[in-house]
Design a protein around this nucleic acid. Structure first.
Length: 690
DNA sequence: CCATAATTCTTTTTT
DNA sequence: AGAATTATGG
């Protein structure tokens, strides 16, 4: 119905290409946007939302769901900038926080309070461990994490525990069935939900309760689902239930970028979109605006080798660009050294940075301690904080398959005085942060045993295992008088905190907790490490300032929610805001998974060794599809780069403290050699052996 | 109950 | 290699 004339009228869509415009203008009925890497996916979706609003749809009627907080944040910001000063905004959320939202509004229906505790994977695994012990199963023989994974996978498939019990096979299956049952019971008793529950319970509500379903279907008339290829069964059901009969669903995705099948992501969802919504409009975005032709060609060659994929190719009008650099390193230290020196070279080639870095590795800033565990943002003391021109550094990313690889890279960055930031150090998973938050959670949810367990004897109060067991068994009166006194004063403390929560702002409460609990005193007495921990908690208080305007009580509640749902990158993002704001720009180190959705002028892909990338995992799952997933992962890595790409592999790598020899990844050989260019060999390959 | 010593993991990717 | 968990003795 819309003709060229009408399109031309919409000034605000003029930055889009034909296909993108078509997508933005298709507002009624189901729409699938198949968007290749760098094809302007977010731009299209945000403009579509803009168009809806311009056509008169109230912003609150629009929902956009993403996978990560970072993606949600970016989308929100881009919508805000498109809308200008408008005050009402669409509801942009991750799947998990949408789940929390729905559950909180209906907590009673599920037998929970709105202060339910969210268990992270660690909490969940330790709860499973307790369950195993209770059932008389040796947790060493049956790894709690593994059991947790199996349960998680089943929950992601929307399997009922009873259903599973019937179909469970083998010894493990039987054990899982028993554990699962008790695990659910315990969570209920603790008023706690695991990550899967956040989606599952929300879907159950929507599915089984007509009124609830109606409320949300009416609340949101237009829904958008980002990264549709990564949805699992539960998320798929959620999207379906939310869009109801109106079918105003816009899904965006790219089958080639499905890298989460190990988490239950089901390609079927995107591949059978047309079956689910027969009147669906499908739009393919195949022009890449991000990368040079060389980079894109390499990526196309890599992904072509997968069998299970749509037949299509991205193209670009960008220039040919430089060749892809290739470096065969001796070991991980050599590899890291190469990366570091290359980064300096890159910075040197931009004249405005040339004076910033020391030329020799020896010129280190004095008094700088090497502290890998902290990760985060190491703007080097002694080197001037980078100013406006320093954005160059943040245009560089170093990618790797597994988190442990960051270590060697960090050491090199420190030696060469290159400011860097590691995405993957989970601020909210640090012990001191978890401890502090546990006080708040326990105060709000007195049933939360996992939180109480964590803090009842930290700082040391002389309440040990035996005492704990008695309390949990409801036999407080069986305690010796002296112990009872300690226990009571602990619960009084929780009571005081809970009172304080109702009457104070988030940042104040954090300070209150560390004082009253004795955490502060404890850490002040400790060594250097403890002081650093205290600093981290203070950072938490700073971060909490942002929640102060939500009002007394509500601020803490939201802070706790965000803390539970913050992934590593998000967590760090928040963590860093304070530091980065000062203008420090840094090279980014992260896993390939974490890099999805991002782009950088210069990208290093490290650890391209057989067994590491593609990663060799132990059996269990179907090898062929795993291999294809590794390939998709490499494809994602390649397509992050805009201008220059470096590939590195190391002959030797130390894993678990012992050195292993690795052949270069097959991926390197899969790239046409005319796209590659050797960056020189490491010295001494022949001489050093062991 | 707690501090220290000994032992056993860890490393795939994440909401 | 280093962290984390568990065993041991006070």
């Amino acid at each position: 119905m819309f003709c060229a004339k009408m399109i031309s009228v919409k000034e605000y869509l003029k930055g889009l290409n034909g296909k993108q415009k078509e997508a933005a203008l298709h507002t009624k009925g189901p729409l699938l946007i198949v968007a290749g890497a760098g094809a302007g996916k977010t731009k299209t979706i945000t403009h579509r939302i803009l168009n809806l609003i311009k056509e008169g749809v109230p912003p609150q009627k629009i929902l956009a769901v993403t996978f990560t907080n970072k993606a949600a944040k970016e989308m929100r910001e881009r919508i805000i900038s498109l809308l200008g000063g408008e005050n009402a905004l669409p509801f942009v959320s991750t799947f998990h926080s949408l789940g929390v939202h729905i559950i909180k509004e209906n907590a009673r229906l599920l037998g929970h309070t709105k202060y339910f505790t969210i268990l992270d994977e660690g909490d969940a695994a330790s709860l499973i461990k307790d369950v195993l012990k209770e059932l008389g199963v040796d947790p060493k023989q049956y790894d709690p994490k593994r059991i947790r994974n199996i349960i998680s996978r089943e929950k992601g498939k929307f399997t009922h525990p009873e259903e599973y019990e019937v179909s469970a096979e083998g010894t493990i299956g039987k054990i899982v069935a028993r554990v699962w049952h008790l695990y659910e019971k315990k969570k209920m008793k603790e008023n706690a939900l695991d990550f899967d529950d956040l989606l599952l319970k929300a879907v159950k509500l929507l599915k089984e309760n007509t009124e609830v379903r109606k409320i949300y279907q009416e609340r949101w008339e237009y829904i958008h689902i980002d990264e549709y290829q990564d949805t699992n069964e539960v998320q798929y059901l959620m999207s379906k239930l939310l869009c109801g009969d109106k079918h105003n669903i816009c899904a965006v995705g790219d089958a080639d970028q499905n890298i989460y099948s190990w988490r239950g992501a089901n390609l079927k969802n995107i591949l059978s979109f047309e079956k689910d919504y027969p009147d669906a409009k499908i739009i393919m975005l195949e022009e890449n605006y991000r990368s040079t032709q060389n980079i894109l060609e390499a990526a196309n060659e890599i992904i072509k080798k997968n069998k299970m994929r749509p037949d299509r190719n991205l193209f670009t009008k960008n220039k040919t660009g430089e060749k892809i650099g290739l470096y065969g390193a001796l070991d991980e230290a050599d590899e890291a050294e190469f990366v570091a020196t290359k980064i300096l070279e890159i910075m040197d080639s931009a004249p405005e940075y040339s004076s910033r870095f020391p030329r020799q590795p020896g010129e280190l800033a004095q008094g700088f301690t090497l502290d890998i565990s902290q990760g985060s943002n190491h703007a080097i003391s002694g080197s001037k904080p980078a100013t406006k021109s320093s954005s160059g550094l943040s245009e560089i990313a170093v990618l790797y398959r597994a988190n442990f690889q960051s270590r060697a890279l960090e050491e090199a960055m420190l030696r060469y005085n290159i400011p860097y930031q590691v995405l993957g150090v989970k601020f909210f998973e640090r012990k001191e942060i978890k401890d502090t938050l546990a006080y708040l959670r326990a105060a709000l949810n007195p049933d939360s045993l996992s939180d109480i367990k964590r803090i009842i004897n930290f700082p040391v109060r002389g309440i040990g295992k035996a005492t704990l067991a008695k309390i949990f068994a409801g036999q407080k009166d069986a305690l010796p008088a002296k112990t009872l006194l300690k226990v009571n004063s602990f619960y009084e403390l929780l009571g005081e905190i809970s009172e304080k929560v109702k009457t104070s702002r988030a940042s104040e409460i954090i300070k209150y907790v560390i004082k009253k609990s004795g955490i502060e005193n404890e850490l002040l007495l400790g060594g250097e490490e403890d002081i650093e921990r205290l600093e981290n908690i203070k950072e938490l208080a700073t971060l909490a300032l942002k929640y102060d305007n939500l009002g007394d009580g509500a601020g803490v509640e939201k802070l706790l929610e965000d803390a539970s749902l913050a992934s590593d990158q998000d967590g760090l993002m928040i963590n860093q805001e304070a530091k980065v704001k000062k203008g420090a720009s840094a090279v980014k180190l992260m896993t390939v998974h974490a890099s999805k959705g991002l782009e950088f002028r210069h990208v290093f892909i490290t650890g391209l060794e057989d067994g590491l990338f593609p990663h060799q995992r132990r059996g269990e799952r179907d090898g062929a599809s795993d291999r294809e997933e590794e390939r998709r992962l490499f494809y994602v890595a390649l397509t992050r780069a805009k201008e220059k790409l470096f590939l590195c592999n190391a002959q030797f790598r130390t894993i678990f403290g012992s050195r292993s020899i690795n052949a270069p990844s097959e991926f390197i050989a899969d790239i046409p050699s005319d796209l590659l260019e050797r960056e020189g060999e490491s010295s001494g390959i022949k001489t050093i052996y062991l």
